[in-house]
Write a protein that binds this DNA or RNA. Structure first.
Length: 210
DNA sequence: ACATTAAGTGATT
DNA sequence: AATCACTTAATGT
């Protein structure tokens, strides 16, 4: 397990920090499709993603959801950082996008390590700025792109995150993530297929032009 | 063979 | 781009 931690975080974290994470952290393997953090939940732990991917969703007042971005190995959920520090409730939902390995850290170490390790401090700041950038991208995509481009971006993102060009998704699920309707997605996917960018089959689709 | 669920289509706003 | 109403196709029992 240490190798995975070093591979994902070693470039930032001091050796002592790695050791400390290993001694206080709790490694968990979580299968795909599990909600790790729910709206309104106060988060008492901090997950470091070792392997897999997590999708971060936002929900409006009517319960409609929208995908904000994906987390990959080496990432942590920034919401937990704000939650843990300020003791506020989660504004987002986090769900495993594929089978994932997490290392769970009790919150109290968050602030202790901030003072103790430069690597941890850099990590926290980098996380904030990276997540902020991803949020901007999500806004750009929403505000300035048509659905056609959004879908294509979404699919390419998913390929990166799952490390496979074969995506097991239904049109309905895509519609949910992009906050659109199944019919619209089906039509636009058809368009992408005609452009030769993807190949569609039932419950599955392959991204060709990547 | 039948029911269920995913995906395709035309028309309308 | 969304919604409706309907069809067609694939899959499980």
């Amino acid at each position: 397990m240490k190798e995975a931690l070093v591979e994902s975080y070693g470039f930032l974290f001091e050796d002592e920090l790695i050791e400390e994470i290993l001694s206080v952290g709790n490694v968990q393997v979580i299968e795909q499709g599990i909600t790790i953090i729910e709206y309104g939940q106060s988060v008492r732990f901090m997950p470091l993603l070792l392997d897999g991917a997590i999708k971060i969703m936002r929900q409006d007042s009517e319960g409609e959801e929208l995908l904000l971005y994906f987390l990959e190995s080496g990432d942590t959920c920034t919401m937990t950082l704000t939650c843990c520090m300020g003791n506020t409730k989660s504004e987002i939902r986090a769900e495993t996008e594929k089978d994932s390995t997490l290392i769970i850290i009790p919150v109290e170490f968050m602030s202790i390590w901030l003072q103790k390790y430069d690597g941890w401090r850099s990590f926290v700041f980098d996380s904030y700025s990276n997540r902020f950038l991803e949020l901007l991208e999500a806004i750009d995509s929403l505000a300035f792109s048509n659905m056609h481009d959004r879908i294509y971006r979404y699919l390419k993102d998913k390929v990166l995150v799952t490390k496979s060009t074969e995506l097991e998704v239904t049109h309905q699920e895509i519609a949910n993530d992009l906050h659109s309707s199944r019919v619209v997605i089906s039509r636009l996917l058809k368009g992408l297929e005609n452009e030769g960018k993807i190949k569609i089959s039932r419950n599955k689709l392959e991204v060709l032009d990547f």
